[in-house]
Design a protein around this nucleic acid. Structure first.
Lengths: 221, 221
DNA sequence: GCCGGGCGTCAGGATCGCGTCAAGACCACC
DNA sequence: GGTGGTCTTGACGCGATCCTGACGCCCGGC
């Protein structure tokens, strides 16, 4: 996160508050260093004061926008409508007039970040032989998609969400079939066999979906 | 674009101004009709007044957010910091206090729309057989335009916005018909058949709009 | 060597979910 | 008031999925 302001006190206040909110903060006190810092640090978001000593804030914005796709939140002492419209149309994502309320600014920064990062994408689990895309709900073996039934998918995703860790049969039964089925270990046997038949190169000698007798099952990538 | 406000004068003014700016506008005067309109009309953006006669504006926001992914711009006569922070954290994309300046509101709406539409990348989805232009709302099969009904379009655009990703039936129902229809899977069957009849080379053996039994549907280019 | 527990395998049959169709309700427009 | 298009609703047949029970195998304990 890059904070651009010429007032040392405000810079300091913002840095402390934003750090407390969990952000990494770098600062700049004028337009030129702001552009340099932005290029060097690749911030997720820029807080930009319009009243700078060297460059006009709108020039900084114009210098930023051709390549910087993250959100820019503008601070300004001037509250004229034309100023606001100009900055917003020039690429700013929000316009906050000074003096501002710190909790509100933080909320607006959260909104800007929320919009900019589309989804907290779920991971893709890979082995030498097959891949499991948890977000897309797709499994491919040697590159070709494989169809799984809902129960097979529920079981597999439980296993691959904890790579290398052993999962007890009771835990698996609870999370796939519900808490009422804690004792029906036959289900597990049947569906593990099904998964191995669809995923393992040699279902008789599993390389990825291992059985720990008496304990549970384990997925090893 | 959906405008929600209980003041008829303001509604009228907003409708006229927004129409002049090139937007299609539907209006609602209370929270319940707002939620119904949003589910029926699929607006790109919602302008929401917090002071409504029946529901609290934040309740409308809460009812909207689980399934409506477009931007929501909040209007309010109250300018307290806590109100602003609450609305912004509840999912609002901007918070404008009344009385507001119309050009500024328009600029803020433009920003919200700019951020919400995924401009990095072409809004055109293509397959070997048909193309879907999300921006122009047009579908062509082998180069010839095809007419889709509003519901068909809403369903198709949900699917092609996530190429390769499986979308659960509940998610589809929520985003196309609204959150009240989470269980009506018959709708999906009927409209998927409709889409396949219009888009697939062989509707009996779909190549692009796949069914994952028990889970949902998937568009694969 | 016998026994029992745990696991993998298999093949039915009950059940569920999907695709299809058509008729009626609803709406907007003429 | 009529008309065309769109949306809803219900019924039906078929295929896939899930459950279930039985059987054989391996391995450690007696």
């Amino acid at each position: 996160m890059l904070v651009v302001d010429d007032d040392p006190q405000l810079r300091r206040a913002l840095r402390i508050t934003l750090r407390a909110a969990g952000f990494d903060v770098v600062t700049a006190e004028d337009g030129r260093t702001a552009l340099a810092e932005a290029a060097a640090a690749h911030p997720d978001l820029v807080v930009l004061d319009l009243g700078l000593p060297d460059l006009d804030g709108t020039e900084v914005l114009a210098g930023l926008r051709p390549w910087f796709t993250g959100p820019v939140v503008v601070l300004s002492a001037r509250g004229d409508s034309s100023d606001k419209v100009g900055a917003l149309d020039a690429g700013a994502d929000d316009y906050v007039t000074k003096p501002f309320d710190m909790p509100e600014l933080l909320a607006r920064l959260r909104v800007a970040l929320r919009r900019a990062t589309p989804l907290p994408g779920e991971p893709v689990v890979q082995t030498d032989h097959f891949t499991v895309d948890l977000a897309a709900r797709q499994v491919t073996v040697d590159g070709v998609p494989v169809r799984l039934t809902p129960t097979e998918w529920a079981l597999l995703s439980e296993l691959v969400r904890a790579p290398g860790r052993l999962i007890g049969q009771r835990d698996l039964l609870k999370s796939v079939w519900g808490p009422a089925y804690e004792r029906e270990t036959n289900y597990l046997r049947v569906y593990l066999a099904q998964l191995r038949r669809k995923l393992e190169p040699d279902p008789a000698h599993p390389r990825y979906l291992h059985t720990e007798p008496g304990m549970g099952y384990r997925f090893t990538p």
